[in-house]
């Protein structure tokens, strides 16, 4: 539904279509230290996940979608950890 900056964290909530990728990107570019909270995320388009991979912020929360929880979240953590290590 939306990508909003809430204090120190960016929250992705509800279902997000491809068009919201740009909003997510500019929020992350403006707040490079912000973490991204996906605990209220619904169905999120690949383009947004790609933004998270490219910019590798810290991604937190356990989304409801079991596929995202099991397969995508580990990828996000991987990317983030690798980014921190370099």
């Amino acid at each position: 539904m939306s990508v909003v900056l809430d204090g120190k964290a960016i929250a992705i909530t509800g279902n997000c279509g491809v068009e919201e990728a740009e909003a997510l990107m500019s929020l992350l570019q403006g707040n490079p230290d912000a973490s991204v909270d996906v605990s209220a995320a619904g169905s999120v388009h690949t383009a947004l996940w790609q933004v998270l991979m490219a910019l590798s912020p810290r991604v937190v929360g356990h989304p409801l979608d079991p596929f995202i929880c099991q397969w995508i979240m580990p990828l996000m953590r991987d990317v983030h950890d690798r980014n921190m290590a370099t």
Binding site: V18, A21, Q29
Partner: peptide
């Protein structure tokens, strides 16, 4: 490799 943030196009897949 991911481009620098200013060159990154979120609407093109690089996956």
């Amino acid at each position: 490799p991911w481009p620098t943030p200013d060159l990154f196009d979120p609407f093109r897949s690089n996956l």
